[in-house]
Amino acid sequence: MPSSKNLIFLLLSLLSLPSPSISSCTSFTFSSNRLFSFCHDLPELSSSLHWTYNTSNSTLSIAFIAPPPSADGWISWGINPTATGMVGTQALLAFHRPDGSLDVQTFNIAAYYPVLPLPLMFDTWGLEAEYVAGAMQMFATVKLPPGMTVLNQVWQVGASVTNGIPDKHEFGPQNLNAKATLDVINSLVETHADSTITEKNAHGVLNAVSWGILLPIGAIVARYLKAFRPEDASWFHLHVSCQLIGYAVGVTGWVTGLDLGSKSKRVEYTTHRNIGMALFSLATLQVFALFVRPKKENKFRSCWNVYHHGVGYAVIVMGVINVFEGISILNPDKKWVHVYITVISVLALFALFLEISSWIVAGRRVSENPAKLYHSHASAATTTAGDGHGHHEHQYFSD
């Protein structure tokens, strides 16, 4: 099994992989002999921008190309004269009409919602759109104020339109980072990367390694190392160390999640947040329960064992589920998903192999010494066996 350092490096590397673009913008050819002086493959949403700027009359002719998430989706490109985000953007939006033809509307986005078609502060004309090979091509000419040659551009795609109004787009990293500065004269594009992207990646990796990997490993150690080496107490110390390290790393990831939530007031991932809160609460309860664990001869030890098993497995299941919730939110390269599925599948198969092997070993011991099995059941009737990490009734899995 790879070390934690190697795994973290691999996960961070996969998270940083760029998303592929449709193709190089220089390979595009347009209908009606449209030609543009410059083009750039934009850094997000597999999109590109082509443009020609006329210095004599301050007009900007553009072609924006992007694949919508669905055939009924929309694409949008705009200029924000006052900020780098969505609010204030003078946007052009292309979508399919009910009859199948394409329409281009102008949207002066004064607020996030509702988004309504309104005239722009810039004069626009030549609004057209085409759908070619799964991508929309939107054309327009914009009259810019004299001297306005460095623009805050914002672009976006969405999956559906209702009555001519675009429905909400996704809020993944690609969508949130779809903005850049455009120098129309010098052909320069400077991206405005999400300042929290590193924190988001760290949040994902910390939680995947802790709740999604270390805690399951700790549970496997407790259940099977004890079964195969009942006379050796090192399994208990290894189990506690693994779980405490996993908890500490998980709390760090949880805190980064709280910080990300405070920075993203308009974006909520309710399911991921609720599972995370419940997960942290149960894990914290599990850690504190370690300090009130009754001794083996205490009559409440069996109740503590049931509690410890139930809460422990609940934390593991919720942790794995929430890792996949986080993956769906970060929407990284598919290889990242495959890495985690592979790791968790290997752990599950390893646990299954040990489960079968332990039962075989236990069965052989019983057949070799049935009197010992009778004695262990007689002892269990008068004392409470176990420290909470095994589950079977016979002595080879007792705690």
Rank of each mutant, 00 (worst) to 15 (best):
V346P: 04
A178D: 02
E170R: 13
L11D: 00
K335P: 01
G212S: 04
T191H: 12
Y112Q: 12
F280I: 12
T55G: 03
H394L: 09
M136P: 07
M277H: 13
S367Q: 08
P145V: 06
K179C: 15
A133V: 14
C25A: 05
F228C: 09
I79S: 10
H392F: 12
P114Y: 04
Q137T: 15
S358K: 08
S187Y: 05
T141S: 08
D183C: 02
F122E: 09
I341D: 00
L15Q: 01
A159P: 06
H308D: 05
E128Q: 10
V251A: 05
G276M: 02
S23L: 06
N6Q: 11
I316D: 03
R273G: 05
Y307Q: 09
V361P: 01
T382E: 14
V150C: 05
V287A: 12
S76V: 02
R301A: 12
V87M: 02
A380W: 09
P216H: 00
S46V: 01
K263R: 15
S46Y: 01
Q174K: 07
V320R: 02
G310W: 10
N274Q: 14
G158D: 06
I341L: 11
A202G: 01
F280S: 07
L7R: 00
E130I: 11
L60E: 06
N57S: 05
I62R: 06
S241V: 08
A248S: 11
Y340N: 10
E297W: 13
H375D: 15
G73C: 01
R301F: 09
D72G: 14
A283I: 07
I8A: 00
S357F: 04
P69F: 03
H203R: 01
L279M: 09
N152C: 07
E355Y: 07
L176H: 12
